[in-house]
Computed example of a mutant assay.
Amino acid sequence: MKRITSIIIFALILFAAGCTKESSGKQDKKDLPDRTTAEAGPRVIAGTMSIVEILDDFGYKNVVGVPSSRHPMPELYAKTEKIGKPMQPDLEVLKRLNADIYLASLGSKPTLDKLFQNQNIKTEYVDLNSYEACLNTIRHLGKLTSKQKEAEHVIQTIEAKTLEVRRSVHGKKSPKVLMLLGSPKKLMMGTKLCYTGSLMEVLKIHNIANDIGNFDKTYVPINIEEIVKHQPDVIIRLTHTKAEDTAESLRTEFAKNEIWQKVKAVKEDKIYDLDSNLYTVSRNIRIMNAVENLKEIIYGETEN
């Protein structure tokens, strides 16, 4: 009897040990990353807020680094590691993150190429300098991240809104518009090749830069004599720093400068400051907001 009891107890001990081992195995497996459910696509660092917002529109989760920015970070990337400023990312952070690809804007290429020299950082530069370039980049990033369906949805949404706005101004004559960038100390004129200029083209807004010359650059130095000659009805201005202070100083400059006083838009105070959140950073689905806003500013001048 004692022998039978010993056998039973031994069997129970073995059974319990087996259960413990099996339970421990399941726990270990649970603690491991579930690679079968990981999102398809490369681990990327989004080097600019424009790229961040495009990837956010896709709902793309495999973003391991984002830039430091004064602009609000999308909730999806609120806890994503910061890499520093777009033009001065922290190389130590980039190396530690070891992403598959670093996405940056085309305009930053000369600076970043020097910074990344011999650093073995795979970088891809995307063009966000015009309306069409933005749509092409959205499509390209959709393919890169295996989010083609989401990318096409974003593009179709933008194009549908753009078409709606264009139809709303069909048949209306655009006032002559001068697009300026900068401060009183350094003013540049926006051509049809700059981002805002491309939106003007989409809405068939009369950009006097097209009358002054056939430029191959996005922004060119102003020629006040030519501006007076072509007499813009409206001036729109964009600045990257301290917009309110710069706007006030520019108005003061216009008011005391005799040459600017010969410009119709200045005499009639038809000067509008553009929201930098719409016309510089937000080049994703919110392109629609910029198109709508530009239409209200410019074609609102022609409404009775």
Rank of each mutant, 00 (worst) to 15 (best):
L112G: 03
T191F: 01
L187V: 11
V169W: 05
E152T: 07
V126L: 13
L97M: 12
G142I: 00
S108F: 02
D100R: 09
V154Y: 05
S146V: 02
K147V: 00
P175H: 06
K173D: 13
E81S: 11
Y125I: 08
C194G: 08
Y195C: 04
V165K: 12
P89A: 02
R166E: 15
K204A: 14
T196H: 00
K85M: 12
D100M: 04
V154R: 10
I138Q: 04
H206S: 13
T162K: 11
Q119C: 07
E150N: 11
E124G: 00
I101M: 15
N120F: 05
T196L: 00
G84F: 09
H140N: 15
V169R: 13
Q117A: 14
G142C: 01
P110K: 10
R139Y: 11
E152M: 14
G197K: 04
E159D: 10
G190I: 12
K149T: 15
S108Y: 09
D113G: 07
Y125T: 09
L135H: 06
S168H: 01
K109W: 04
I121K: 06
L163G: 11
Y195G: 09
K114P: 03
N118K: 15
Q156N: 15
I158A: 09
G197D: 04
C194A: 06
P175N: 11
N98P: 01
E132Y: 04
V154G: 13
P175W: 05
K161S: 12
L187N: 15
D113F: 05
H153L: 04
I83F: 02
T162D: 12
L178M: 01
D100H: 09
K176M: 01
P89S: 01
S174V: 01
G84W: 08
E92Q: 05
V126D: 06
P110T: 06
N136E: 14
L187P: 04
L115R: 05
L115Q: 15
N98D: 15
Y125L: 03
T123S: 15
A104Q: 00
T145M: 00
G171F: 11
K176W: 02
E159M: 11
N129T: 11
H206F: 05
T162Y: 12
L94W: 07
Y131I: 06
H153N: 13
A104D: 00
V126W: 02
L115G: 04
P175S: 06
M200H: 07
L94D: 15
Q117P: 04
I205G: 00
N136S: 14
R139A: 11
T157N: 09
G171H: 06
E92Y: 01
V169T: 12
K82A: 10
R139K: 13
V202H: 05
T123L: 00
T157K: 08
I158G: 02
